[in-house]
């Protein structure tokens, strides 16, 4: 911990000597109490959150890994122990890769992973297409009006995700607002089937995650040097060409950051496919949920989670860290 000492702190005279003979109320004595050794104080500042996250964030993944290698058992908790004590001091380690083999054999899981990837990728693309004009529009507003437009983007983000999904159900369902309006206008005779379809899932994901795309995009576009565009215009470049050759490439960090913020949570999304998707909308978050809550197969749910982590989450997070590093050095 001594490496963390700041040079400035060396100028501090040893306060322990000065404060010890002081008498007075408990309060003043508390105020002038012996300071902790500097290394220890700093160690506690970084150590407390670090310890918390090690126990409640990292350790749980170890437990998931462990249980994914156990077998299902009719017991509470419903899985077998990896270590068996057969009476005496001999312990046997039983690793069971059966759940992982089953993941590969049953096409349900593979198509659920593929389905999640497809939904997340397509939704990210649509978020980008809808969110980019919004971010650019806000960035081009006069400075004093930008907070208002930003607040309009952030407001839905502060309201419950569940309720925003719910709002769409009222619009899309069989006797919902959209169908009522279209039938009353005489455009259609039969209500359109929109709920419980893949379309509804895409719509829900795009709608829910749109603010996550707009905010990082805006952050990049706001910092964009306007003079570059003026230079392009002065040199005879058409506005759309200046956009394609100047604005778009320069906003890449925002596009990448926004896409990550949409893509990763969308892959594991549960609420939207559960409420808006049909029975054949396969997404891995929903499969995990069903394995856990409906089938009570904790080892299977754990194996699904481990594969989702290894295949999707970790690569994307590493990619993101790499992006951040190049952005810092570049």
């Amino acid at each position: 911990m001594s490496g963390g000492d700041q040079t400035a702190a060396q100028a501090v005279p040893d306060p322990g000597v000065a404060s010890r003979p002081r008498t007075g109320s408990v309060l003043t004595r508390l105020k002038h109490r012996l300071p902790l050794p500097r290394g220890l104080g700093q160690g506690m500042v970084s150590g407390i959150p670090l310890g918390w996250l090690l126990v409640f964030f990292l350790l749980p993944f170890g437990v998931v890994l462990k249980i994914s290698l156990a077998d299902t058992a009719i017991a509470m908790p419903p899985y077998t122990a990896l270590l068996d004590w057969d009476g005496e001091a001999v312990a046997t380690l039983q690793l069971n890769f059966g759940k992982y083999l089953f993941l590969l054999e049953d096409t349900l899981y593979l198509s659920a992973y593929a389905g999640s990837l497809k939904v997340a990728a397509v939704s990210t693309l649509f978020c980008l297409l809808i969110g980019y004009p919004m971010a650019l529009f806000i960035a081009r507003q006069p400075a004093e009006r930008r907070p208002l437009w930003l607040a309009l983007v952030i407001l839905p983000f502060w309201t419950s995700l569940l309720l925003r999904v719910y709002a769409w159900i009222g619009l899309l369902q069989h006797n919902g607002v959209i169908n009522n309006i279209l039938i009353n206008l005489g455009i259609i005779d039969q209500p359109l089937v929109m709920m419980q379809t893949d379309f509804a899932v895409y719509l829900g994901v795009v709608y829910t995650y749109l603010p996550f795309m707009v905010l990082p995009l805006y952050a990049t576009l706001e910092k964009l040097d306007e003079t570059l565009l003026e230079a392009a215009a002065d040199l005879g470049s058409a506005p759309w060409k200046a956009f394609l050759t100047v604005t778009l490439p320069l906003s890449r960090p925002g596009m990448v950051a926004g896409s990550m913020l949409v893509f990763i949570p969308a892959v594991g999304e549960f609420v939207i496919p559960a409420l808006m998707g049909g029975p054949d909308t396969l997404m891995i978050g929903r499969v995990l949920w069903d394995e856990f809550f409906n089938n009570r197969d904790w080892p299977m749910a754990s194996a699904v989670a481990v594969v989702m982590m290894v295949v999707l989450v970790i690569p994307v997070m590493l990619l993101r860290n790499g992006q951040n590093k190049t952005a810092e050095h570049g």
Partner: peptide, 9 residues
């Protein structure tokens, strides 16, 4: 960024 189903489980 962690999918919530994984964190929860």
């Amino acid at each position: 960024v962690m999918p919530e189903v994984i964190t929860g489980l």
